[in-house]
Design a protein around this nucleic acid. Structure first.
Lengths: 110, 110
DNA sequence: AATCTTTATCGTAATATTGCGATATAATAA
DNA sequence: TTATTATATCGCAATATTACGATAAAGATT
């Protein structure tokens, strides 16, 4: 077929995969980094920052929002997007944990 | 159109996106976790562990290998796959750095 | 109310991913 | 050399993603 067999894996594995997918495009990495460095989290600024059309950026923002990586709040006519601290923390914790476990491990081959 | 505009972003952003994409499927998260916990990094064991056909697993392994997340070494008839420490470390460092920066930041809205 | 500004959604084309049966390849074993 | 075993690749169908013009929706401004 072609549909991802997500239901065959654990909730946690799917959760990590979903978060990873939310960053699996350079535009979305760029959005995260922009939100981190700027004090202006207005959607229009993100659109101006990126080399993509407004609907495309809007779509990327929606995916990141659905994944829980960012959140938006209405600010008059504009929308202010910010990074979701808890989610980023979750990702950070996951990779730190993997790294620690890997350090403690003695990989046989390679 | 439909092709990702990767050339419009920085090398680093593409690099992170590529690594994220390598984990943007629960099967690939499962593979990483299996490789972390087991002492048997034989390909056939991974195939048995996952609810996917052998060619599908082989394809996922190839993508993870291309992204540099794992590496394989020939072990007789079998192939032994291991996690690439440096790459995992890179991911860990990236998210830790983001997390630290975010903690230090005062997000205006949301 | 009419208009302007900002963002979201629709529709659709191009491309990429996912999954797997069939088959090829490579190393070992008989 | 002929199996056997383990993994990779091919080919294709189903599905998902990416991109964007056109347009809708929601709020501000006049």
């Amino acid at each position: 077929m072609g549909a991802a067999k997500t239901e065959e894996f654990t909730k946690r594995q799917n959760s990590i995969a979903t978060l990873a997918k939310a960053l699996a495009h350079p535009a979305r990495v760029a959005i995260l980094e922009y939100l981190l460095k700027t004090d202006n989290c207005i959607c229009g600024d993100i659109v101006n920052e990126l080399p993509l059309a407004q609907p495309t950026v809007s779509q990327h923002l929606k995916e990141m929002k659905t994944a829980g990586l960012i959140q938006g709040s209405v600010e008059g006519t504009a929308i202010c997007y910010c990074i979701n601290k808890d989610t980023l923390q979750k990702l950070q914790a996951y990779f730190s944990q993997l790294s620690v476990k890997l350090e403690a491990k003695n990989q046989k081959c390679c």
